[in-house]
Design a protein around this nucleic acid. Structure first.
Lengths: 206, 206, 206, 206
DNA sequence: GATGAATGAGCGTTCATTCAT
DNA sequence: AATGAATGAACGCTCATTCAT
């Protein structure tokens, strides 16, 4: 007559505990005790449900990946430029489900991915996937408008960089961003970069 | 006949030690021992020259700030759009003096600034200064071309975000950025955002 | 089915460990390692049960305070002079429960109280309480014998000083005190000081 | 052509530096740096003039011993009871040469003597000498008054204890001592204890 | 499943002491 | 005589992890 397993619920609790603590202290200072406390549990129990601290981080990363993916999945119709705009909005919209903590966490995760190879791999995976969707969106526009597509990877990377940069800037220096301008500005920059793709004999494509 | 002071040289050594270690392990894992070892010194000596670990970080931050500032200071002539391009190049050029480590460090510092108020203040100062120069550059262009300047802060923030994002992306996922495309793409996005500033009765200024 | 808590017992163990070590080395040299070893525990565990080293000291101080208080509480009957004698005996009797270590510790605590405000407060509290009881005892005698009570605070302070001094002398130079003479001598001095309180026109009350 | 030696002056400076620092921090926290700073010197120089930290302490102790001895030496005339009073005054007078720091230092030294055998020996020596003079003074009184001298060692110890206790109480709880009452009260207690020495068949000598 | 006591490695920091100059 | 850089051994403390209950 074993107790009914509640592992899934507990793991969820713990992951959210890490998210909360990590958002305000970073990963290194998110002690197992603090995570447990934020989750309303005890430290020992954390290690009953997770092999170690890193595993919690990996699950949090997977979770955030799923969130971004779900958002991006809603973007699948409309005119090419419109779709690209929606994709950008999906990353930068501060209005929706996004805990404020989730964004801070994502930024912190970026820093952590630099150091821990095991974190880096899945983090890269999310970034790569986002990049791929952006590139696809960019390519679609360029093809639809009969423009050269040679820069489409570079443009996608530029948009990704701008979005990641906005997330970080928003966490670190929120005052520096005029309210509500983030998505709008990235979209403006996107259009500008797309419009610059014209077939030129002398071939200068900025 | 005292031994001649070598404090300045030692402090420099130690700061560079932190830069090296921090670039590959992050601040938390850059133990004083590791810093000392990287500098070819003993841990005790590190604390002889610095009050504590954070003070080394602050000196490193000040150092990086000086580097960016020096680069930006070289940009002071040319046509408005050209000056803005140079400003962007000053942040993103990977070719010059920039240790590879310095960029990784700057990214890690951004994460650290989120947690330590004493780091945040000078970090913000550098970012604010860069933003101010960008805004000034953007405004100059818009005025020279008789365009509305209402979005110039938003555009500056967008460029800053893109540049910071490129630094991070470059450290974390270098393969995702087509070689040499970073500055070029930000410049393209900048021109696009600038060109979008037109006086329109129906007023859509992206 | 958690493991039953043994915190109280462990804290007791640790406090006694400090008492033992401190009695022979003083507080500064009572390292957490040494305390743990004296208690048969590991250093980590000490910090599991106490926030820091000072907290152990405070608990030890509270403990000693309780001991003195309990001793003094037994003195509550008899003729006034007799009660005062008993009070003195309560401080100076070496025969009873007093670990030899407890006295040495009390002396060391006196030195520590001078430097650490957080120790000073509760230490002073114990001293003040003892002084109050002495003063009360002295006043009772003087009133019962229709003597002037103006000097009763001074006499109480003198007795307190003598008792504290005996404790210290006993720890530092035990040979200088004829065996068993401490309480007896303080009592003799008390009687002398009390007898000196007489109403005199020319009013010199030594 | 060596530099003229200034060792004696320097040692004096350093010892006084220790006295100042020790009075307010205790011996353990009187770092060599702090001592040097208080003396207006550098840490290295301290070790040039003293083999180690303990040696400074020993010299300070010797110094204080000389001060007490000098004071006691002035007491050499008058009636027996008067001489005893003067002896007590020599220890407790707060008015004269006594730095406030010297008393605090003496108290701290008492604590240190408990732990360091090398300090204990000379400390004991001072205490023993003071005791001897007190005993001599007490004996003189008792003999002059044809009282039994059996208790003279105990009385001397009692006076010593009271005086030491007053010093400590004065440093730790100055408010508990009515202003100016210390010497007066010890003198009263002394007279009381002396008066109690009477030849009694039933032999109760308190 | 759950608790919290227990461990041990490692951290930042302090400091008496030494030594080249 | 004097300086202050340099060392190395400790110290108090933190924390991920283990484990008996």
């Amino acid at each position: 007559m074993p107790r009914p397993s509640n592992t899934d619920a507990r793991r969820e609790q713990i992951v959210l505990g890490l998210q909360r603590v990590m958002a305000e202290r970073g990963y290194e200072k998110a002690t197992v005790s603090a995570i447990a406390q934020a989750a309303g549990l005890t430290p020992g129990l954390v290690h009953y449900h997770f092999k170690n601290k890193q595993e919690i981080l990996l699950e949090l990363l997977a979770r955030l990946g799923r969130v971004w993916r779900a958002r991006a999945a809603t973007v699948d119709e409309g005119a090419p430029r419109e779709r690209l705009e929606k994709l950008i909005n999906a990353w930068l919209a501060r209005d929706r489900s996004a805990d404020p903590g989730a964004v801070a966490c994502w930024v912190a995760l970026g820093a952590e991915a630099l150091r821990q190879p095991q974190v880096r791999a899945p983090y890269d995976e999310v970034v790569r996937e986002a990049l791929a969707r952006l590139e696809e969106g960019v390519e679609l526009v360029l093809e639809a408008e009969a423009r050269p597509t040679g820069e489409c990877r570079a443009i996608a990377a530029g948009l990704m960089a701008a979005m990641q940069g906005y997330l970080q800037l928003g966490v670190a220096n929120p005052d520096s961003i005029p309210r509500g301008s983030a998505a709008r500005t990235v979209i403006a920059m996107a259009h500008g970069a797309l419009d610059a793709q014209v077939t030129q004999p002398e071939g200068r494509s900025r």
